[in-house]
Design a protein around this nucleic acid. Structure first.
Lengths: 131, 131
DNA sequence: TATAATAATGATAATCATTATCAAAAAGAC
DNA sequence: GTCTTTTTGATAATGATTATCATTATTATA
């Protein structure tokens, strides 16, 4: 059975708040400020837990270090090949439905039961494009 | 300057041949049969190299261990949540162009210069669905 | 509200995929 | 063939993540 923990609450809250896509280390550095005794293992444990129950999402990046995203809704990520920041591309309900339907059709071609999508675009972000 | 190596040739050839999406370890086990002295570091080095020059692709999976794909053309991957195999969803030219155009439009919403896509669907594969 | 049962925490050791190092071997230039 | 430079194979180092475990916090129950 699942018990409440202040730590899990704070981790989830931080992820829901932030608009970046922090690594465990980044979360750790941030959360230590408000909860100095928090252990990094607690963060690893809880982000796994929160992913498993669908409250947050794990993002796999080019460098192999996981990022976490407090927005579990369907949206698309863009990773800059230069600064390696990750940006959200928000989808309107209509567009999201359309894409989902298309992907479902694709999954059908291999007779698979489609559940989740993960779309990562990459290239140059607005800022790096200018340089 | 880039020098030829038999090892790189064999690694690329194996990846082009295989229809699965092997990890470095899987490649190593396989290639040792035809080249018993090959070192695993050589495989790591060469798959990185081959990715960098766009001849193969790196796939990021749920377990965090990279898979490599000899097919560098645009296509979509499907990872089974049960058996964790990865399947290709081949796209017809027309469909591929359409999806690419849609993704380009999405990238435009954040003023990014879109270069590459990586689409990973997940769910249950045909086989696991039946069980 | 005390107490028992159980799950979560924090510290730290262990794991393991990947990378770095380096002497020896191979490839290409002359 | 000789020289230069890249690649290899072996192995040590790295570093993100996971496992372990005694302690602490949470929830259920008397």
């Amino acid at each position: 059975m699942k018990k409440y923990s202040k730590q899990r609450e704070v981790i989830l809250e931080s992820l829901k708040m932030r608009r970046d896509h922090p690594t465990v280390d980044m979360l750790y550095e941030d959360l230590k400020l408000q909860m100095p005794n928090i252990g990094i293992a607690t963060i690893y444990r809880n982000v796994s837990e929160l992913c498993a129950c669908g409250q947050i999402r794990k993002i796999k990046c080019e460098d192999g270090i996981y990022r976490y995203d407090g927005n579990a809704e369907n949206h698309i990520h863009f990773e800059c090949n230069n600064c390696h920041k990750i940006f959200d591309i928000e989808l309107e309900e209509k567009e999201s439905t359309k894409i989902k339907k298309e992907l479902q059709n694709l999954a059908n071609t291999i007779n698979a039961e489609f559940d989740k999508q993960e779309i990562m675009l990459s290239g140059l972000c607005e800022k790096c494009k200018k340089q």
